[in-house]
Design a protein around this nucleic acid. Structure first.
Lengths: 343, 343
DNA sequence: TTGAAAGCGCTAACAT
DNA sequence: ATGTTAGCGCTTTCAA
């Protein structure tokens, strides 16, 4: 609908520079086959005129698309909004535009979004958010992305290993272990796990870390109550209610992300169960509000903004023969939601 | 770079359906000039084949671009991430893609982003975030957007009136008044204002509301300490420190957004100043964590997600002769950060 | 090193 | 109601 905006076309630049369309194109794209002198003149004229290529024409003609597609569960979930912030930041520096869409943590819907982005001919796709334990669920996405990559598209994923693409991997297992160790050191033995739905890889990995920590202390995760609910705040609420009802002697709750931890804290506050005096609570992610909660939350810090940047960085490099992997590191942040076991 | 993805073109659909390119185009676009019967057949075939139009070709040929550009201060600021969530939600329902970029609350940078989006030929531009009191600062953006709209582009803004476009306007003044009234009713008389930078319209409007409430009680904002700092969490911290130092007898602090309120609460917590017993605190926006803070925050609720949806709704309607305006409503949410004045 | 010309896949006049 | 055709602005062979 919008008419030619600036209305400035490459041919205008070419004419002013006294060269042909082809030469102008080559000069601006920095391709070779143009003398330095002519190339400079063209670039100069282009800058003076404030010329910006029409991306539709460019892409249609076979040039590469300068937009990156980003799929997140929900942008208004702080974990994802921080990742998105990182992607947008770096994209801005590189002159790229970012298209964001929601997967709603639904593999079907996610697949649809991936297809959509491919149909939109974005040049880069970044998929953020946990993968699914069941490989069949992701098989199709993997296939589609493989085709896309074969066609020259670049893909990077955050927090999933099974997609055959460059990956930024949060240290979920190490983080889980750090949380478990922290609580054990405080003397807790009756620890409940507020976990997201068990199909999520993130949940599986974080649980494995906790299990490892328990094992080192001669304990087993199998003896602890584990409640699987949605991987969001409300899930944390539900799970906590169930734990308080079925395992009233629990002294510590591990929530596998900060969103769930917020739900946990909310229920404990309503029931007037003192944290950490009667119940310790830990989260995972260290979203930016974690330190402002009531009480401030002990959690594992993941560098979400950097993870977004890293993913785009990977995608910006030429494709490698084998998928690259970058792990993020993690750090235990002890705040006021954890204390010694009451008994 | 990415090759034809599915490689499916409109002509393929047309052939399979046994019609011409033009007919297929008309049928899929829902334009008239095609018999119901043929149109259905084409749509059927298209669906079966999983055809998705190449948006670059479509836009280049003069069709309307199906992407909407959204400019926010920062996506990882909850206020904006919720707005973005609303926009993306509705966009998804409409089959549109959303390109997000950051303005960084810098008018120059914002202007650059607007230009960029126009150059990218997006069909719709949504600008979220406060405008600037000084009309000159926005004059250029206004001009650029006017040109864009003349060319058929659609624009909607959130939280600013001076851009000559359809606008979603938060009830900042009414909200400010509600906050002032609430504190006055609790008996507070020494109220300090933690305000964002005074160039922001949002700040000006919210302050005006507070001033009105005070006036109704025979008081004046001029007699209260007002500290202008950055409109973010850190600004709230700085301002609070200054207030505690210079006006130790203050009994209530009005922060003009929740981010600042979080900074206020953080400082009070560190100084062990009891909230609300010694100091009441209110915020503005009701970001989703407001209820989980320590203590939970009394604030003004704005329907951010809906505001995002509303903005896109406005932009989806054909342009009207005069800019449309929708106000959002607001609601005082009383939580645990406010209580009776201690003296 | 440079230019001319053939598309990329679609929409929109213009014919029929 | 349907088909034909001329572009949209660019990249990229292919010639010169």
């Amino acid at each position: 609908m919008p008419k030619p905006g600036p209305g400035l076309r490459l041919i205008d630049v070419a004419q002013r520079a006294g060269v042909s369309l082809a030469t102008a194109s080559r000069a601006l794209a920095g391709r070779e086959g143009v003398s330095e002198e002519v190339a400079n003149r063209v670039r100069q004229v282009s800058a003076e005129l404030g010329y910006v290529a029409n991306p539709y024409a460019r892409t249609l003609a076979g040039g590469s698309s300068s937009t990156v597609g980003l799929i997140v569960h929900q942008v208004d979930d702080p974990y994802f909004s921080e990742i998105a912030g990182g992607v947008i930041q770096l994209a801005g520096e590189q002159g790229l535009l970012v298209q964001i869409c929601h997967s709603g943590r639904d593999p079907e819907h996610e697949l649809r979004q991936i297809r959509n982005l491919i149909a939109q001919r974005v040049g880069i796709i970044i998929v953020a958010g946990s993968g699914y334990g069941d490989p069949r669920v992701e098989a199709e996405a993997r296939t589609v992305l493989a085709g896309y990559q074969r066609g020259g598209g670049r893909v990077a994923v955050i927090g999933r290993h099974a997609l055959g693409a460059d990956a930024v991997l949060p240290d979920n297992e190490a983080g889980g272990r750090a949380l478990g160790t922290h609580l054990l050191e405080l003397g807790h033995r009756r620890i409940a796990l507020v976990a997201g739905t068990p199909e999520l890889n993130t949940v599986i990995d974080r649980m494995a870390g906790v299990a490892a920590a328990l094992r080192s202390a001669g304990l087993s995760l199998d003896d602890m109550p584990i409640v699987h609910t949605d991987f969001v705040r409300e899930g944390g609420r539900t799970a906590t209610e169930r734990i308080l009802r079925d395992h009233p002697d629990t002294t510590a709750i591990i929530a596998l992300n900060d969103a769930m931890a917020m739900g946990v804290l909310a229920v404990l506050r309503e029931r007037e169960i003192p944290v950490p005096d009667r119940m310790s609570v830990v989260g995972f992610d260290d979203v930016s509000v974690a330190g402002d909660l009531s009480p401030s939350l002990t959690t594992i810090r993941l560098p979400m903004t950097d993870m977004g940047r890293m993913a785009l960085e990977l995608a910006l490099k030429p494709q490698s023969t084998r998928p690259r992997r970058r792990s993020t590191g993690q750090q235990l942040i002890v705040r006021n939601s954890t204390g010694p076991a009451p008994f």
